[in-house]
Design a protein around this nucleic acid. Structure first.
Ligand SMILES: [Zn+2]
Ligand SMILES: [Zn+2]
Length: 478
DNA sequence: TAGGTCGGACGCTCAACGTT
DNA sequence: ACGTTGAGCGTCCGACCTAT
């Protein structure tokens, strides 16, 4: 128990947007949580390629570690009655020790530590070193806490960000909440962040990464298999019984067997009404009813933090169906979104060519429809070859210019053109090279200076000065 | 069989562009 | 001023694995 850690809670909670958005930092009442003396978790040195960070940002210091070597750290003197949420108020302790970080006051100088409120997870990273680690602090009275856990999450430059979404990280300099739900957005406070530790998902240890090898940054993992440890708290939060689930949602039984299978709920605005067989898909009517196409997927504007981390379907309700199912209601809050950067020059736009000039290319679509043009896409765009049976039927608008203009042909566009290179090529082969076996990805085909991949996931923010990262999975945080 | 991970496909939004 | 383009960035499908 380290009193000092308690004292620092308040000041360390602003792990994330502290400097840029002070106002968003919510000072939550700190609870008396007693933490074991933080110890720098250095015993498991492992290294990861500096450059080759795993996609998905596994290494970001979402949850790093800080914990006693034996994992038995103490007690949460004030555990909430809610079995599913140990404490939504526990403060995240965060410290960092990297060059760019802000002051590292506190606990172990060498690490960034944080306490996951709802799980009691204490995490920290040692950005400067190669020994990030994560520990779960067991809370005796807690039904869901496990014990020491090593987290492969390593940290990159931005270790200062606690439980932050990769995409958000790259923009820490302009941290702002999404224009989307500003009023709903909550600062990444402990309660909110804690949610970022997805109880139902133990620390992310992707198998492949661990056992592997070159591709894995976690080659030097501790001898103890993470998976083994995970099992201890596998369901950190046991799924809520269906009955309860049903009650919660006020819907009848059978429909509740699983959130996935029965996404519909009156409280959830997401239109599930015409739900096809696929449980998690939401569909929209296609422009062409005759076309046998893959229905368009609908997304919620803002997934909750839990779903976001799990990369699972969320809905508009709060708590969302999924969180309800897993007893994560308390941490089901909207995830934050960054504000799109402005002032980015894009270069000249291509002009679409009228259908008539496209030859046989079928371009039936509405000319004015700029987005999600189905089948054939807008004029001047060619949809993927039919040969791509597996390929998404959504037309990935592959801009191809009929005119022999100098316009860049071949953006390796993906959705909406995410991966194209705006105007330059910088030596990169911009030509469009279809690779339809599965789905092509401009990113995979061409490496960009930014390691661009798809729109949002990897290196999306590429054009920014972001250092960072790569993907959008919150994994490690569990 | 259920649930966790996570690569990457796909969708949405909106500022930059272009045109009127 | 308004329509279009397409990049930024988010969601979440679905394959793969492990645990039960
Ligand atoms: Zn959700
Ligand atoms: Zn939720």
């Amino acid at each position: 128990m380290n009193n000092s850690s308690q004292q620092q809670l308040p000041q360390q909670q602003d792990y994330q947007q502290q400097q840029h958005q002070p106002s968003l930092v919510k000072q939550e009442p700190q609870e008396s949580i007693q933490l074991a003396t933080p110890q720098s978790y250095q015993q498991q040195p492992f290294q990861y390629p500096h450059q080759a960070q795993p996609s998905h940002n596994h290494g970001q210091s979402y949850t790093g570690l800080q914990g006693s070597s034996n994992g038995n750290i103490n007690s949460f003197s004030a555990l909430p009655s809610n079995p599913y949420n140990i404490s939504s108020h526990l403060m995240g302790l965060s410290m960092q020790n990297n060059a760019s970080s802000t002051s590292a006051s506190g606990l172990n100088s060498s690490s960034l530590a944080s306490v996951s409120s709802n799980t009691g997870l204490i995490s920290g990273t040692n950005s400067g070193s190669t020994t990030p680690a994560l520990a779960y602090v067991s809370a005796p009275s807690s039904p869901i806490l496990g014990n020491l856990q090593y987290n492969p999450s390593y940290n990159q430059n931005n270790s200062s960000l606690y439980h932050q979404h990769p995409h958000q990280q790259h923009q820490q300099h302009s941290n702002q909440y999404s224009y989307h739900n500003q009023q709903q957005h909550q600062p990444m406070t402990s309660s909110n962040l804690s949610s970022s530790f997805y109880p139902a998902s133990p620390p992310h240890q992707h198998q492949q990464q661990q056992q592997q090898t070159s591709s894995t940054p976690f080659t030097g993992m501790p001898s103890t298999p993470l998976r083994q440890q995970q099992s201890q708290y596998a369901p950190l939060v046991p799924p809520m019984p269906d009955a309860q689930y049903a009650q919660y949602h006020q819907i009848l039984g059978s429909a509740l067997s699983s959130a996935a299978s029965t996404p519909y709920h009156s409280n959830h605005s997401t239109p599930y009404s015409s739900m096809p067989t696929s449980p998690t898909l939401e569909y929209q009517q296609l422009a062409d009813p005759n076309a046998v196409q893959k229905p368009k997927r609908r997304q919620v504007k803002n997934a909750c933090v839990n779903c976001q981390k799990a990369c699972k379907k969320c809905d508009e309700g709060r708590p969302c169906m999924r969180c309800i199912k897993y007893g994560l209601q308390e941490t089901c809050v909207d995830s934050t979104r960054k504000v799109r950067k402005k002032g980015i020059k894009r270069g000249p736009y291509k002009r679409k060519v009228p259908p008539s000039q496209l030859g046989s290319a079928s371009a039936s679509a509405t000319p004015t429809l700029s987005h999600a043009v189905l089948n054939g896409g807008p004029t001047g765009y060619m949809s993927e070859p039919v040969t791509a049976l597996n390929s998404p039927t959504q037309s990935h608008m592959l801009p191809f210019t009929t005119s022999s203009s100098t316009m860049g042909i071949g953006y390796g566009a993906n959705s909406g053109s995410s991966n194209g290179y705006p105007f330059q090529t910088q030596g990169i082969d911009n030509s469009y090279v279809p690779s339809y076996t599965t789905s092509y990805s401009g990113a995979s085909l061409y490496s960009t200076p930014y390691g661009m991949n798809d729109g949002g996931n990897v290196g999306s923010s590429s054009s920014t000065n972001n250092t960072n990262n790569s993907n959008n999975h919150y994994s490690n945080l569990a």
